[in-house]
Design a protein around this nucleic acid. Structure first.
Lengths: 294, 294
DNA sequence: ATGGATTGATAAGGTTTCCTTATAGGGTGT
DNA sequence: ACACCCTATAAGGAAACCTTATCAATCCAT
C-alpha cells in the first residue's frame, strides 16, 4: 500500500540535484542516463508527484524541494548505520565480555589484555572473575562471550578448547615439615589438617579423595584461606596458578601421587555465534595461550 | 564498496525476529519461506556476519542483537518519511503561499480562505498583499505559489488564468456634482482635479489616457487616497473592487466611456509545478471564482 | 527409540525489476 | 534554421527476486 523508497533511488535523486542534471549525475553514479530517468520517474509515480520539473535541467519542483532534505537525511542515516554495522562486523568496534576464574584473571589476563587493547584499540573489554562453576554458567547463559576456566562438569551446551594444564599441589606454611619437599605423595598428607577450598573438588575421584572427604574445614574466599595458612592453621591444595607466587610465608609443593591437574580451557556457548569482537578475542586467546603453557 | 541495506531485507529480518521463525515471518510478509532465507542470507553475506544462528528458530547471533534495534530504527525513519511524503504529495499536509492585490485580499479572500481551511484543515496558508506588479514578481520568483492579480504586462514566465473583470469607475466625494450620476463619460472629467493611484495605469492606452497624463497628483497609499477624496481634494479612478464599499462619504460612478476593466486572474509561474497543497488551492480558487463574477 | 511433523536450507525455473544501447523529441543559442 | 545539449522513450538483455519442489535436521509423541 505505502510505497517503498529504495536507497538507490534516493541516491539518484541526490546525484541529479548535486550534479545539476541527469547526464552528469549518470556519470557520477556509473549508470546510463536513461537508468536515472526511469528510476526517478518510477519514484515520482509512486509518490504521485513529480520531483523534477519536466524538461528542466534537474530543476526541482516545490514537492521536490520538500523531499530533498529528507532524502538526504535518510541517506545519511542509512550510511551511518552501514558504517556502524560494518565496523562491528569487521571487529573494528565492539565489546567483549570475558569471565575467568580468579587465578587466571590475576595471573594470566593482565599482560594479555594489555597486549590485546594495544593491538585492537577500538575494542573494549569487560573481565569478570568468578569460580569455575559460575564462569561456565555465565557463558552458557550468554552473560559473557568467552570464559577461561576448567569445566565444572560435562556441560553440554558449552564448547571447550583446551589451553593448558595447571598442576595441583599442596600449600602450607614455610615452617611446616613438608615445606621443603620438592614433591609429595598423598599418603604423606594423612593426618594433616586439610582445609578445603573451591578447587578441592579436583581431587575427587583420585586416590586422594579420602583426604578431601575427611576434611572438616571449607573456605571459599582466597584471602581468608591464605590468612589461615599463614597462621599455620592447616594445609590446603591449590592449582599452581592459584598459589600466590610472591607469598613469603607459604610454600607450594607439587603433588606427585596422584598427579592431578586442573585443565584450563577456553569456553564458549555451543551452537552460538560469537560477536565479531569476541571472535577476534577468541582467536587472540587461542594464539596466545595454546602453545605457551605459561 | 560499502554494502547497501535494502529496506525490504530489514523488514524480513524484523519479521523473522518478531514472528520467531522464517516460516511464520514468510506468512506475515506474504512471501515464500525460501525468499526470506535467501534474502537474509544475502544480507548476512554482505555484512560479513550472520544475523541468525544457523539451525535455530530465528535465534539472533550477538551481531544480530546488535543489528536489530538499528534496523528497527532505520525502518521507522523510513516509514515516517514515506508517510510525510505521501501526506505532502496528496495534499493532506502542506503550506500555500498566496499573493494578491489589496482589494482582492480584503474583499474576496477572507470568506474564501475561511471556506478553504474548513475543507482542508491541515493545509496552512500565507496571504501577502502587494500591488499588481509585485504580486507578479513574487510569483515569477517563486516567493509565492499563486497570485491573484491583474497582469502587470505580458509577463512571459507567468501563466494567467482569467477569473473575473473589475470595472473601473470614478470615485469622488458624495457632495461632488458628479456623485449622483449612474454612469460617466471621460469627457465629463476634463477639468476635474484627478489624483492618480496605483491603478491609474489601467486608463493608459484608452481615450482617457490624457486625463491621467495631465494629473499632477499621485498617491499610492489607499488610506491616504481615501482621506484626500473625503476631504474633497479631488477625484480619482479605481476598480470597483478597490472602492471601499461601506464608505459613507464617497461615491463610485462607473466609467461608461471608455469601458475600462481590470482583468483579475490566477497567476502561476509557467513551466513550474505547483506544490501539492498549492495544486489544491489552485483548483479551489478556480472552482470558487471562475463563474462567480463576484 | 521410531515415525510424523515442523523448521530452515538448497536447487531449478520463472517473473519482475533494473540497466543498457539506440533513438526520438524539445528546448537553446548561434 | 541548424547544430547542440539535454531528457524521454523503446526494445532487448542482465540481474535480482520470488516460487515450487525437495532435502536435511530437529522436535514431539507414540
Amino acid at each position: 500500500m505505502l510505497p517503498e523508497l529504495k536507497i538507490q533511488q534516493l541516491r539518484y535523486v541526490i546525484a541529479v540535484v548535486d550534479e545539476g542534471g541527469f547526464n552528469a549525475a549518470a556519470k557520477r553514479v556509473f549508470r546510463s542516463q536513461p537508468a536515472l530517468s526511469m528510476a526517478v520517474r518510477e519514484l515520482e509515480q509512486r509518490l504521485g508527484q513529480n520531483i523534477f520539473e519536466r524538461g528542466g535541467k534537474g530543476q526541482l519542483t516545490p514537492f521536490g524541494k520538500f523531499c530533498l532534505p529528507r532524502f538526504r537525511e535518510l541517506l545519511g542515516q542509512h550510511g551511518r548505520l552501514v558504517k556502524d554495522l560494518v565496523n562491528q562486523a569487521d571487529g573494528k568496534q565492539g565489546h567483549v565480555h570475558i569471565a575467568t576464574v580468579p587465578s587466571v584473571a590475576t595471573r594470566i589476563m593482565p599482560p594479555l589484555l594489555a597486549e590485546f587493547i594495544d593491538q585492537f584499540p577500538n575494542l573494549t573489554i569487560s573481565l569478570h572473575d568468578e569460580n569455575a562453576h559460575y564462569v561456565c554458567q555465565m557463558v552458557a547463559h550468554g552473560e559473557v562471550d568467552l570464559g577461561i576456566t576448567s569445566l565444572w562438569q560435562g556441560e553440554d551446551e558449552l564448547d571447550y578448547t583446551h589451553l593448558f594444564e595447571d598442576k595441583v599441589g599442596v600449600v602450607c606454611h614455610r615452617s611446616h615439615p613438608l615445606a621443603n619437599r620438592s614433591s609429595i605423595d598423598w599418603r604423606s598428607l594423612q593426618g594433616e589438617k586439610l582445609i578445603r577450598n573451591g578447587t578441592s573438588r579436583l581431587l575427587m575421584g583420585t586416590e586422594a579423595s579420602a583426604l578431601v572427604e575427611n576434611s572438616a574445614f571449607y573456605i571459599s574466599n582466597m584471602i581468608s584461606l591464605i590468612a589461615m595458612l599463614e597462621a599455620g592453621a592447616g594445609i590446603t591444595t591449590l592449582p599452581q596458578l592459584a598459589f600466590p607466587e610472591n607469598n613469603q610465608n607459604l610454600s607450594f609443593i607439587p603433588l606427585q601421587e596422584p598427579d592431578v591437574v586442573r585443565r584450563i580451557g577456553l569456553v564458549k556457548a555451543s551452537n552460538c555465534t560469537l560477536s565479531p569482537a569476541a571472535q577476534i578475542m577468541d582467536a587472540f586467546l587461542l594464539k596466545s595461550l595454546r602453545g605457551g603453557e605459561k
